[in-house]
Amino acid sequence: MPILQKSQADRSATFAFWAFVSPALLGLTVFTLVPIVWGFLLSLSHAQNTIHPGHFIGFRNYADLLTDEAFLKSLVTIVVFAVFIVPLTFAVSLGLALLVNKVGWGRSFFRTVFFIPSAVSYVVASLIWKVSLFNGLPFGFVNHLIGLFGVHPVAWIGTAHPPWYWLVLVTVRLWLQVGFFMIIFLAGLQEIPKSLYEAASVDGAGPGWPVFRYITLPQLKATSVSVLLLNLIAAFQAFDEFYNILGGSGASIGNASLARPPLVYLYSLALSNQDFGRGAAGGFILTALIFAVTLLQGRIFGFGGSEK
């Protein structure tokens, strides 16, 4: 009977659907949806040394944080960091992609070389930057280099004037993430039809700036917007290099006061201080901020709109 067969096949397909989807759905529920709801309830509670919501205090945690100078300053810090790191990463990874795309011989070699740092952990890289490259002793790598030119050793991390620690923080992230975004740009570059360049050449546009400006860059729009978005979200979530280079908890937290991004502040509030209510509220404020900036950026660059 064909009808029965069909419904059997349907059932079988339904079973297969749930068999494949349910592990992911279960994971999403247990590890994402429940924590979000739980976190929101916590953010409305006075949850000191407990992760059980219950002692509800309305939006006081949010109000506390939004009037807390240290938290507001951390938001400024992260915006400053993003202003440095996002354009820099964009320019350097695009530049590298263009260069790597140009070389005929050894392209995969260079691609791999530049991509390898992406596989390094932020913690490990931060410690290398802090302890060997930028330590303040005369035999630190950078101090040794500048010493060759007769410059005195510099305390790179720990002084506010001049704020050399920004150099350390920005270069470590640059080194770690440029390779990854270069790969994305490379993929974008390889998608651009060769015929466009041929047509430009026929029309008399020589290689160089005009071709880059009027063909390559516009053709990379979708790629560029996604690189900017990913970059910006990652910058707002910065934690590892700040925590490991400047310190976030423990006995030598003095440097953390120099530049403390929101996640480091919330980490110390929620985990060192065990105030999970305010920690959760801060998480939601930060999420709202990232959401708003992403929407704004999408509006400006037209992300998600139809290609014209």
Binding site: A70, A160, H161, S249, A256, S257, S268, N273, D275
Partner: peptide, 20 residues
């Protein structure tokens, strides 16, 4: 004395010592 107080005081002392 908790770590949130410690952070507040550390921020102040950093401002005094390093930002002058």
């Amino acid at each position: 004395w908790n770590s949130a107080m410690g952070t507040a005081l550390t921020d102040a002392v950093t401002n005094i010592l390093k930002e002058g």
